[in-house]
Design a protein around this nucleic acid. Structure first.
Ligand SMILES: [Zn+2]
Ligand SMILES: [Zn+2]
Ligand SMILES: [Zn+2]
Ligand SMILES: [Zn+2]
Lengths: 123, 123
DNA sequence: TCACAGAATGAAAATGATTGTCATTTTCAG
DNA sequence: CTGAAAATGACAATCATTTTCATTCTGTGA
């Protein structure tokens, strides 16, 4: 765990959720923790190897990272106004794990979101 | 459904699984169905909108597409080789509906995917 | 303390998928 | 047939990510 990796971790902590490499870089530039973009990528690569961060992909394919072990949750989002509710996913966690092990898959992750119209927007 | 979209669909049928835009383009170039790369991307975009194809992401972020079955389902995907299993989502459908109505949301949809390492890749 | 090998760093260039532009061609309703 | 609108594709632009490579740091043995 070298100095750059620590800086990236601190940035991710501050963010508290997902962030792309570029966002992390921007954040660090702003403060006094300046660090090169290349190094951000290298640090993330290394943190991934050590399973200290998670990687997901946005819809457009950009990679986003977050600290592992942050509380995992899902979203219920209004299609019209964007109002969002955070969901504890107990049931779905089990579902994912069951299905995956049933098919011999390991190192399992999942994504789930629910869309709809909130009460305000559905009048 | 215009001519290019049809060509792309035919190519996807021949492939029988996932293919990237570039692969589809290469395949069509080979045969007598030549078509521009830009047009392949446009056709895929359009087919996505109409939910005629599915989009997934390889590990490196590249988009891959395939024909979508007509029934609603979810995917269990290998992060490494892309091997995919289609999942009947009974449990998750109920979960989504419950959560959403609990919060007063209507007109509900959802997304869910499970990813992991398939048995071959998890050595 | 000094010298030096190897690791770490980052600026700049390279890569590669995807998207934007725009002039040209095709389609088709009137 | 004719003009408007849609479709097409060559090419340029964008943007995340990776490579390169010269430079700077760091620790270790003399
Ligand atoms: Zn709403
Ligand atoms: Zn979950
Ligand atoms: Zn696999
Ligand atoms: Zn479902």
């Amino acid at each position: 765990m070298n100095k750059s990796e620590t800086k990236v971790l601190v940035a991710l902590e501050r963010v508290g959720g997902f962030a792309s490499a570029q966002e992390i870089h921007r954040i660090l530039q702003r403060g006094s923790q300046s660090i090169g973009l290349t190094t951000v990528y290298r640090a993330l690569q290394s943190l991934l190897n050590d399973k200290i961060v998670d990687l997901l992909r946005k819809d457009d394919g950009e990679a986003i990272y977050r600290l592992c072990g942050e509380t995992h949750h899902h979203h219920l989002v209004c299609k019209s106004c964007g109002a969002t509710v955070e969901i504890e996913g107990g049931a779905i966690e089990k579902w994912a794990k069951n299905i995956a092990t049933q098919h011999g898959y390991t190192d399992i992750g999942h994504m789930a979101e629910i869309f709809g119209l909130c009460s305000k927007c559905s009048t």
